[in-house]
């Protein structure tokens, strides 16, 4: 009996969290002759036409490619840059190490919205506004990821590396052959969260991009809503296109997502 009550509650929370996505999916599959306002979850004339239709009103596949480019560059830059910096902070002895750690720590303390306007001016002085490079650069090596990687390297046993030092391995060899392979779990977490953050980001691309050809998917969707709100089926199809890749990624790698929340929350 207790168990039945627990499942009833679970199903209630499930309906609240997943229901809105299902409603959106359902709307995106409804045919032109259906009443989108009627509360029917199952389309009576299911069609994929809205997915083709959304590409007729906005260049949605260009938006997808732009978002994909930004997200992938962000993933590679964060994995490489944060691992390197994290390794130096965790394993190399040098003057100025505490200063370097302080720089990254203060980077975490500054909320992005606080520097938004000023960052736009910096980007303009580099001539990078309205470019995808300008979208990627500010998050290319996130300070939080550097500290996550530093902690991951600190948690490794130092003995293996000490043996490698005796064998004459230099810092780069120890980094690439011993440290990085041992910390690949955390690197995967960094990769996942970099992808998600970049794919979902809204405020910065909104400010830095002005040309619809350069739009990422998030601002492309807001633009679609602004111009074609009358056709709810098309907006729904666009949102499903935007959220589907992340859901696939999440279902296949959910353990690492959960791990990332734990580590990010405790250190952030």
């Amino acid at each position: 009996m207790r168990r039945v009550g627990r499942y009833a509650l679970l199903l209630f929370v499930l309906a609240v969290t997943i229901g809105p996505f299902l409603w959106q999916l359902s709307t995106s599959l409804k045919g032109a002759g259906e009443d989108v306002y009627a509360p029917d979850f199952v389309p009576s004339q299911p069609t994929l036409a809205n997915y083709a239709g959304v590409a007729d009103v906005v260049p949605v596949w260009t938006f997808v490619l732009n978002s994909l480019f930004v997200a992938l560059v962000n993933v590679v830059a964060n994995c490489v840059g944060a691992s390197m910096a994290g390794y130096a902070l965790a394993r190399l002895r040098f003057r100025g190490r505490r200063l370097a750690a302080l720089v990254f720590a203060s980077g975490i303390l500054v909320p992005f919205e606080v520097i938004l306007i000023s960052l736009f001016l910096v980007m303009r002085s580099f001539g990078l506004t309205n470019t995808l490079t300008g979208v990627v650069l500010p998050g290319a090596v996130a300070a939080l990821n550097v500290l996550l990687m530093r902690n991951a390297f600190l948690a490794l046993q130092p003995e293996v590396e000490e043996a490698a030092v005796i064998d004459g391995a230099n810092a780069w060899q120890r980094f690439a052959r011993i440290a990085v392979p041992s910390a690949r779990g955390t690197i995967l977490v960094v990769a996942l969260f970099s992808f998600m953050f970049s794919w979902d980001d809204f405020l910065w691309p909104l400010v830095v991009l002005s040309d619809p050809d350069k739009y990422t998917l998030t601002i492309g969707l807001a633009y679609l809503q602004g111009t074609f709100f009358q056709n709810q089926r098309l907006v729904a199809a666009g949102t499903i296109i935007a959220v589907a890749p992340l859901i696939v990624l999440f279902i296949s790698l959910q353990k690492h997502f959960f791990r990332g929340v734990g580590e990010g929350a405790i250190k952030g």
Binding site: A77, V80, G81, A82, M84, A85, Y87, A88, L89, L92, F94, G96, R97, A100, V103, F104, S106, G107, V110, V114, I115, I117, S118, L119, L121, V122, L137, P138, A140, V141, A143, V146, N170, A171, W172, F175
Partner: peptide, 26 residues
């Protein structure tokens, strides 16, 4: 002596240019 700074270069460059400089500028 400069090896650690080579490791730090990409990260420091990004955080300083796109976080700390804009902050001071703000």
């Amino acid at each position: 002596w400069y090896t650690p700074w080579l490791f730090l270069l990409p990260g420091l460059a990004v955080v300083v240019t796109f976080s700390l400089v804009p902050f001071v500028n703000m």
